[in-house]
Nucleic acid binder design. Structure first.
Length: 189
DNA sequence: TCGATGATTGAG
DNA sequence: TCAATCATCGAA
């Protein structure tokens, strides 16, 4: 996927002190489409929550799930009419690791951002970031272009029971071996 | 309005 | 294997 290897950057301004910069290399993503994709939030049409998926590409789509977790997406539309987004599932932490550990309550580096909800915690993601332009380096959450990893593989998606035939989960093979990505490769039948 | 549910995580 | 936990959505 296009996003793999790029850097997700989160800038936080707390207590009026200098801006803190948290970032990580994107090592795992999942794509979600429109009406042909039953697992997508956009499947049933546009709602206030998924409006970003129908808007301009390159925006942040932040949503709250399971009562506890924030997930980060980048809106993307493969073709004019469609809606869609790419869920960022895992990062390799780069900047502000110490800070992330605080947000994540002192966990190990490998498990800091190895899951969608964990990224939400580690990067202090809030709903107010929804709709931010992620192509603008001034945004408090944005993408910086990096180097594409050599080995990328596509697998079945995780965490949803719908449209399992679509192999739209993309991971960087090298990073997955190091343990930076979610480790549920086999789903229970 | 009300009830079901989910692109998850962490503990048991 | 299972509970936590709540915003969102669709049906009533």
């Amino acid at each position: 996927m296009e996003l793999l290897g790029n850097k997700l950057v989160r800038i936080i301004s707390n207590t009026g002190e200098k801006l803190k910069r948290l970032s990580g290399i994107i090592v795992e993503t999942e794509a979600y489409g429109f009406k042909d994709d039953a697992a997508s939030h956009a499947f049933r049409g546009q709602t206030p929550r998924n409006a970003v998926m129908f808007g301009e590409a390159g925006r942040a789509y932040i949503y709250f799930i399971y009562g506890n977790h924030f997930c980060v997406n980048v809106s993307a539309r493969p073709f004019e009419i469609e809606a869609g987004a790419v869920l960022i599932r895992a990062l390799q932490p780069v900047e502000g690791i110490k800070c992330m550990k605080i947000f994540r309550k002192n966990s190990e580096e490998l498990s800091l951002t190895s899951g969608p909800g964990k990224i939400g915690q580690a990067l202090c993601i809030q709903k107010s970031l929804n709709g931010q332009d992620m192509t603008d380096r001034k945004s408090h959450i944005h993408i910086e272009v990096g180097v594409k990893p050599p080995g990328m593989i596509a697998t079945q998606r995780i965490g949803t029971s719908k449209a399992l035939d679509k192999k739209w989960r993309f991971v960087s093979l090298a990073k997955s071996k190091k343990g930076y990505v979610t480790n549920k490769f086999s789903s229970r039948s």
